[in-house]
């Protein structure tokens, strides 16, 4: 009785894993544009999460400079890599669900300016954090957020 039940359980588990594998396969069948969008969004999420880490620390009575430094370094490195997150053909015209505006590619020079803006501000943030300059980090938060907003206001469609 026990044996038969365990065999049935095993069969059910196998059927389930086959179904799961089929589903995963379907999910993996992404277009190149969808892959680029997913990677881009994952990167931006890391950027936002790192900035949140810094802002959370700044709210504390005794902010952890090591945590701020690590997050600032991550932000700087992500900003350096940002230009590669927007391969041609990964806009909304590809059919992928993205809020990236076409101007990113049609106004490449303007887009490069705001990218450099983020790189400059995050590099400054990292420098201040590495130097243990808490007041400096506090003051650098606003321009860094401003660099995020500069691009979001111009090159991202507003949320529906």
């Amino acid at each position: 009785m026990v044996k038969r039940q365990s065999r049935r359980t095993l069969a059910a588990a196998m059927a389930l894993s086959v179904a799961a594998a089929a589903l995963a396969g379907a999910a993996l069948a992404q277009t190149a544009a969808e892959k680029a969008v997913a990677a881009r969004q994952a990167n931006f999420k890391q950027l936002g999460a790192s900035f949140k880490t810094i802002n959370d620390e700044l709210k504390k009575d005794a902010p952890d400079m090591a945590a701020i430094g690590a997050a600032a370094t991550k932000m700087r490195d992500l900003a350096v890599g940002l230009p590669s997150w927007f391969p041609k053909g990964s806009g909304a015209e590809s059919g992928a669900k993205t809020r990236a505006k076409a101007e990113i590619w049609t106004d490449a020079a303007g887009f490069a300016v705001v990218q450099r803006g983020l790189q400059t501000q995050t590099a400054q943030l990292q420098k201040l954090a590495a130097a243990g300059d808490l007041a400096g980090v506090r003051g650098q938060v606003k321009p860094t957020g401003g660099a995020c907003a500069a691009c979001h206001d111009k090159y991202r469609t507003p949320q529906p």
Binding site: F44, K45, L47, G48, A49, S50, F51, K52, T53, N55, D56, K59, K60, V141, T144, G145, C148, A149, H152
Partner: peptide, 22 residues
């Protein structure tokens, strides 16, 4: 709540991670 940049947030968002805040 946390905004998409991780810049603006509610006073208790420090107790949740970025995804939860979003």
């Amino acid at each position: 709540a946390v905004d998409i940049d991780g810049l603006e947030s509610g006073p208790l968002s420090q107790y949740v991670d970025f995804d939860t805040g979003r």
